[in-house]
Simulated scan of single mutants.
Amino acid sequence: MTDRALAVVRAGALTTVQDQGRPGHAHLGVPRSGALDAPAAALVNRLVGNPPGAALLETTLNGCDVRPRSTVMVAVGGAPCPVTVDGRPVAWGAPVRVPAGALLSVGTAVSGVRSYVGVSGGVTVEPVLGSRSTDLLSGLGPPPLTDGTVLPLGTPTAPHARVDVVPHPRPPAELILRVTLGPRDDWFTTAAIRTLTTHTYRVSSASNRIGLRTEGPALERALPGELPSEGMVLGAVQVPPDGRPVVFLADHPTTGGYPVIAVVRPTDLPATAQAVPGTPVRFVVVRRR
């Protein structure tokens, strides 16, 4: 191991390595994976001089502590949180120099759920099917980080960004998800479609990287029975037997047997990464199949 490495001192609730994921392998049963808040991940990579696809750390709720073995540039974005170097407060959402051996602490999110830690050179764990992303469903990629894990880092290829202010979207106070109805909306009653599109749901605490689960009124089925297993796309709104919609996210299964009532527009999905439990959710139909 060279000195281009990052030692994990405190892994936090759930910290994983993520990049842009491994799309194109659904026919093999391999989920897409990748950073849930892709724009936030791309921004912190840009701040430290990495290409958009460089691997970084995705933390959940209470951050992590890491110690670089060589001097690196670091940027923390996504969910706003306190950031310190050897106990001294430093900027969130901007490039920060972290000396070799110093302790970088990414604290608990003030709002939102997932923070992103970009390090100059990127995390260079061994790729699997072209991606370094951790996939919680299939187990592909590196396992979730634990205390004592040591991650290799690449060599920086560009200088860090030199900016005074960088705009960052705020975590959503209300999650508005624009959807296209179908392909199985005919499995539900007219009343169920009206319920989906007029009632406010809330983000469930059972949500994770696989799917955003909701709490609210159940959707009534028009057809009984089960579907043969069929392909699931990113953003599919699947309705399990309890009738509460589930929005499939990056680590979602590639097939499923419950009907998909609608599909969320891809541009609305990054906000789901930062929606805390209890956040209101509204489904807005912008297109019918």
Rank of each mutant, 00 (worst) to 15 (best):
H27A: 09
G122P: 03
L47H: 13
G29Y: 11
N62I: 10
V117S: 10
A26I: 01
V128N: 05
A100H: 12
G118Y: 01
S33I: 00
R97E: 14
R32W: 02
P23V: 13
H27T: 01
D135N: 04
C64D: 00
P95L: 06
P39N: 04
H27M: 04
S105A: 13
S120N: 12
G53H: 15
V85Y: 03
L61P: 08
V128G: 06
H25G: 05
L129V: 06
S70V: 14
P39E: 07
E58N: 12
L47C: 09
S33A: 15
P95S: 05
S70Y: 02
S33F: 00
A79C: 09
R32H: 13
R46L: 10
V128Y: 08
V44G: 03
R32D: 09
V90F: 08
D37V: 08
D65Q: 15
L104V: 13
P127A: 10
A94K: 04
G34M: 01
L61G: 11
P23K: 13
P99F: 04
V44Y: 04
T134Y: 06
V123Y: 04
L28H: 12
L56A: 04
G53W: 12
V98E: 12
A55S: 12
V30I: 15
N62S: 08
V44E: 00
V48W: 03
A79E: 09
T60D: 09
T59V: 07
S111N: 05
A42K: 02
C81H: 12
A55F: 10
G49M: 02
V83P: 10
T59D: 07
S115N: 10
A109G: 06
L36T: 04
V113A: 13
D37I: 07
G107I: 11
D65A: 15
R46F: 06
G34E: 00
G130S: 07
V85G: 06
L28I: 02
G49F: 01
R132I: 06
P82G: 08
P68K: 14
N62Y: 07
T134Q: 07
H27V: 02
A42F: 05
G21R: 03
W92R: 03
G93S: 09
P23R: 14
P127H: 10
V106Y: 11
